[in-house]
Amino acid sequence: MLIRHPSDIAPSEITPREVYRHRRAFLRSAGLLAAAAGAGGLLTSTAPARGATRLAGLRQSPFSTDEAQTPYKDVTTYNNYYEFGTDKDEPADNAHTLKTRPWTIAIEGEVRKAYSIGVEELLKLAPLEERIYRMRCVEGWSMVIPWVGYSLSELIKRAEPTGNARFVEFVTLADPRQMPGLAYPVLKWPYVEGLRLDEAMHPLTLLCVGLYGELLPNQNGAPVRVVIPWKYGFKSGKSIVKIRFTATQPRTAWNIAQPREYGFYSNVNPQVDHPRWSQARERRIGEFRKRPTLMFNGYAEQVASLYAGMDLKKNF
């Protein structure tokens, strides 16, 4: 079995040479003081401070991309996690108050076998895999992140959904004592996300417990989250406490907040713009020029069939 230790690779080694060269050329041409300084910021990414528990014996996944991975430091300091503040750097500063042990997830609703499972047990439910996925935020930036977990379907199968189960709802922790952001009604708390059952059962849909070979840092959604790589990042709910199977489409946090701007599906789609900005291109964190956004974030081959015959402009 191939065991990789991605953290042994320095970010400088991960960054492809042409990106470096591009940066240098860019620096030479930079006349603006501030711009040159901004470019400097990209060159001096410091070694990340790690501390989390390492996860051993990770399997490699055929779903992984071989694109350059976004440095650990950027993955863990540039986060949207409004329960800990609406600025990107706030979750990393504030999420230390999150208590991730003990932690149980309740699996309930339209299932034959409702059950609760503790996080320690969850870690052993199925072999952990490393999956290097692209992550595209609805705001127009993207990362490549080596997640750790296994297909959510492993968890779902054990619950034996009934014939009525057509959707899955993910309910996030909402504890004002642990989460300072809950004091502000920016979104409707708790943060709820959802998928169609077939989307949730798709092998790409990841039940995620770690990144870069370690347990998830709090600001990335510890102790357990989902990752749906062909949808905008906000669909991938963090710090999940409840997974509920329903007959009707769940009402999800961003859709409640701004139904015109954030649909239930929210598949990455360069042809369907956000009402206020374009989705045709994205800035990969660490790169200067924007790159074209791919249909279903580059996972069309695997997931396009889920939406056969659907008007994706209407079901945005």
Binding site: A34, A36, A37, G38, A39, G40, G41, L42, L43, T44, S45, T46, T70, K73, D74, T77, Y78, K88, D89, W141, R283, I285, G286, F288
Partner: peptide, 11 residues
Amino acid sequence: GAQGGLGANPI
């Protein structure tokens, strides 16, 4: 910028 303090998305 010189310190690398502009975060993950300096632009």
